[in-house]
Design a protein around this nucleic acid. Sequence first.
DNA 1: CTCCTAACCGAACGAACGGTCGGCCGGTTC
DNA 2: GAACCGGCCGACCGTTCGTTCGGTTAGGAG
Lengths: 218, 218
Amino acid sequence: MSGARTRLAGAGRPAYDLDSLLAVSVRVFNERGYDGTSMEDLSARLGIGKSSIYHHVAGKAELLRLALDRALDALSAVATEPRAAHGPAVDRLEHLVRRSVEVLVAELPYVTLLLRVRGNTPVERRALERRRELDARLGTLVQAACDEGSLRPDLDPGLTSRLVFGTVNSLVEWYRPARGLSVTRLADAVVAMTLDGLRVPGDPPDAARYDVVREDPS
Amino acid sequence: MSGARTRLAGAGRPAYDLDSLLAVSVRVFNERGYDGTSMEDLSARLGIGKSSIYHHVAGKAELLRLALDRALDALSAVATEPRAAHGPAVDRLEHLVRRSVEVLVAELPYVTLLLRVRGNTPVERRALERRRELDARLGTLVQAACDEGSLRPDLDPGLTSRLVFGTVNSLVEWYRPARGLSVTRLADAVVAMTLDGLRVPGDPPDAARYDVVREDPS
DNA sequence: CTCCTAACCGAACGAACGGTCGGCCGGTTC
DNA sequence: GAACCGGCCGACCGTTCGTTCGGTTAGGAG
């Protein structure tokens, strides 16, 4: 499988280091779900005994923590890139969407795991909190682009933000790098749909367009 | 809680029927994940003993099966509605997206559970297969709308289909009916973003627009 | 050849799991 | 009041869970 392995491989000895062990484990977590994966499932897939896993990590929870931190660190890095701080908000938004797609693909298994966390354990709850912070930052940017007048005014910024990043996050459910669709083209398509729409423009420009739709108590 | 309960409620006796028991169970499944939910978790939340659950259903797996079938039946019904069969493909597509959003909201807990299934058990694999059939039908419709010339030609139909219904499916991650955003407005917003785009049109109509982007091996 | 250490192993642990069993209890029916 | 039944219960079953522990083995260093 996918493993960088340390020196003493030689014959058939796997000899995992932490990174390769984590990579295999996360792959299994994504296939069967974290709770649905037993340490024996992992050991079978790793090709080593169940107890050997504890030579590398303290337990199942730490495996999860390492994976989630990796995803969160990568996503956080995007939000703090300099290009996300200057220029028109709508351009910064487009850049952020594009970079988010790239990171999501680069760290696909880890981000996939992150997006499925439900908060059952302290480790998961801490990850959810970090995720909420990121989402809040994205929301602010969409708000700014809306205030700026660059986004259609008939949609609530909070709603817009959720739709856009819901779309981005949904990529983990089907995108597989091996299938020949490059990341750049994928990001182009996401930006094209969310920002410019799928329908060919023209014809009846729809009289009712841009009637204001906002969240309100019904 | 949410439960319709049978006649003999009277004092403090819960007295569940199958529907109300399923409703509560699915809610817990969604909070903790199916694999992360024990029968004791359910019994605690239901307010009855663990063994009492087996008076209503054969086991945990049947609980899951009932919930998934409910979601799948509702979604299948949409795909076979008469309005999804006549008229321009792009109009049928818009209608299908709108109805999908409505059903997703109407059966939110059940659809949520369906979208998180990983295929660990036979019950889950059967559900995944039914889902794939639905997805295939959607893909055909997008293809038709594309052939018709109603969708921008620079995006691959398969890719478009995944993006649109990825967006729709991602609603389960955040939409809560109680928050005052009506289903109609939600569906309007989804159609508005996916089909017409978020950005205000005009200004530099982007010379490079509509360069063909298709999947190909790299 | 000897020693050291990183990586692995099988056996076993207590806890928690999904599920079974025999019985209780309060309404309804006759 | 006796018989019945749907809904519930506590105790318990065998299995599987995550984890621990006392070795073993292979390769590098001296």
